[in-house]
Design a binder for these strands. Structure first.
Lengths: 115, 115
DNA sequence: ATAATATATGAACAGTTATTCATATATTGA
DNA sequence: TCAATATATGAATAACTGTTCATATATTAT
């Protein structure tokens, strides 16, 4: 390790180690992204921007089988990215908070695509 | 599909289908999140917030082997999340743009953790 | 109670991914 | 040209992930 920018890079590396978040926080952050990195789950989140829906309406909105959507909803719910409440014989799903949509919009700005 | 909120959910589902982004855009968005959902790659991005670094300094900052870091850097570079330039015998890596840091900060706000 | 509807879940399979090890390529200095 | 340094990469393996199929649970209406 003997690069031309020795000074600057060593300083950056030192600061990086000093300010590196706790392993636990990094893992939680990674888990969150893991949860929204699947196209099927992304579709569900994009659909829920239009308002809360029960499972079969989500299936109608995003396509796929009821089973697959249900499995994906469980992951989103466990990660607290969506919330669910029972309403009669339906379970109604909604986005957990507005951070989700903001993250999606920022990422799509990076990609220069409109979502 | 005969739920108690028939009207509202049907309307939401209709809007969701109407406003669903192109499959291609969803896949690109998913790819981006897939790229930053790995703890090792997240660490690299968090480290690069302190400034550009060459590979061995990144290895020093985040730990792991040179080979593993190099593989991860290739994925980040392909996804245009980091950029690389040669400088003498070193390759200097930097965050591609500020969107990345903003996304990380928003997500960590959702998790109520400081990064 | 029973049937119908809505949702969830376990197991299995196919496909993907991160790391390691060994090695290749590229640049510099002697 | 040769040795040293920095970085990249192919192959192999182990672990993980999403979907499907079959079935279970829960709620409501008759």
């Amino acid at each position: 390790m003997n690069c031309i920018h020795e000074r600057e890079h060593e300083e950056a590396a030192r600061l990086a180690k000093e300010n590196m978040p706790a392993e636990e926080d990094i893992l939680r952050l990674a888990e969150s992204f893991k949860t929204i990195c699947d196209p099927s789950r992304l579709k569900i989140l994009l659909a829920l921007r239009q308002g809360e829906m029960c499972v079969l309406h989500i299936v109608d909105a995003v396509g796929g089988t009821q089973s697959a959507v249900s499995h994906q909803l469980r992951l989103l719910r466990t990660a607290k990215i969506v919330k669910a409440r029972r309403d009669g014989r339906n379970i109604v799903y909604a986005l957990a908070d507005e951070h989700i949509v903001a993250v999606l919009e920022l990422a799509s700005a990076h990609l220069k695509c409109k979502i």
